[in-house]
Design a protein around this nucleic acid. Structure first.
Lengths: 205, 205
DNA sequence: GCTCCAATGTTGACAGTGTTAACTTCCAGA
DNA sequence: TCTGGAAGTTAACACTGTCAACATTGGAGC
């Protein structure tokens, strides 16, 4: 991108390039920090060019956060087993996919839940962000319909699930779940505990 | 602090003042961002003075994070009911205190779990940070000893608890738990679900 | 009591950042 | 064909973290 020789004056698709470059930089430094000027540099464009596409750095962050929620949503839905499996399998598949997403995109995941990104636009209240929540809710509804989970306000259970997965993810990212203090497989332990709190005790032995 | 007239050349206790000022600024902007120069300004001291007490901004952040863990630890232990209450009461008291701490110190809480603070020194692996984990572990051990909680590797259960509380706290801070999507009292719902996942089903009805 | 030194505070500089304004280039629609 | 506006550039501003060189001081050792 650096050869200024034959590069046309107009980039052509700078908006997308900026986002992609920023995403790539987020992947390198897990500190989820990147500089707008460096993004421009890598895109082979002057440092003020991005401002023709984003009013603000915060706007770019918000956009990226939304993109992150899209990807997370996709990761969860594709992880969900197609065949009519037991709810337990689905539960673990989704849970593990959630944590997996976070730990393999720590910078992006951090950004998605950071104050800077959320403040700009109401990222977290957007449909794209809440779609993730929807995946969990659907799963619980199915569980209740099948009688595997106890009948309760689904929303509360979904909140518990979300919180649990989010918590596990962040603590794993921080390296806290690799501690011997936390036992051999804390991720599974946490998921089991959560699931058993949701289950219908009368049915499942 | 701004009157340069009678202020002595040496501040006397700048280290503490810097930390306190930074803490105060953290409280104002929930964005957990503050600038070293502004801290110095408020402390009535030149912009380079803090460098005589902290090698780095990261070092200051790390120190503040550790202080945060101390405060959280204290908040949890003082919230724990003194009288020999039921475990359930203790559980809810500690859980609510945890979330309460986070939501009333969002900047500090964010800092405590941010990558920047953790990277510098191994903040999260320090005894002061793990003391918080100890509170949860103790609680679960008591529960198992009393037969209220099912006997299992305590560490896994403690991991689940910690993750759940951390998750609830962050999602609450983000305003996600004020959504109608999430039901009337998501905090309690999440805690109940967690507790019932830990409980010994044979004993409790 | 005096002296000197190390700790503490100050000043000035440097590179780098986000952001804006004024200017250029170039494509698309009249 | 002409032209207006979208897209990119350059130059500047105020700000940041950090460092080196300098100033001030309280206190340890004589």
């Amino acid at each position: 991108m650096q050869e200024t020789a034959n590069r046309p004056y107009h980039h052509g698709d700078l908006r997308r390039t900026v986002i992609e470059t920023a995403m790539a930089m987020l992947h390198e430094d897990k500190g989820w920090q990147f500089t707008l000027r460096e993004v421009a540099r890598r895109a082979g464009v002057s440092h003020a060019a991005p401002y023709k596409h984003f009013p603000d750095k915060a706007a770019l962050l918000a956009e990226m956060a939304l993109l992150g929620f899209d990807r997370l949503h996709k990761a969860l839905t594709t992880a969900k087993p197609k065949k009519s499996n037991t709810l337990r399998d689905e539960f673990f598949a989704v849970g593990r996919a959630y944590v997996e997403f976070g730990t393999s995109n720590p910078g992006l995941y951090r950004l998605m839940f950071s104050a800077e990104a959320g403040k700009a636009a109401d990222v977290h209240l957007s449909e794209r962000a809440l779609a993730v929540f929807g995946v969990v809710t659907e799963m619980l509804e199915r569980g209740q319909a099948e009688g595997v989970l106890r009948k309760r306000d689904v929303r509360g259970g979904a909140a518990a699930c979300w919180a649990q997965m989010h918590g596990i993810t962040m603590l794993t990212m921080e390296g806290l779940f690799q501690l011997e203090k936390v036992g051999p497989d804390p991720l599974d332990a946490a998921l089991v505990t959560l699931l058993e709190g949701l289950e219908n005790q009368a049915v499942n032995s």
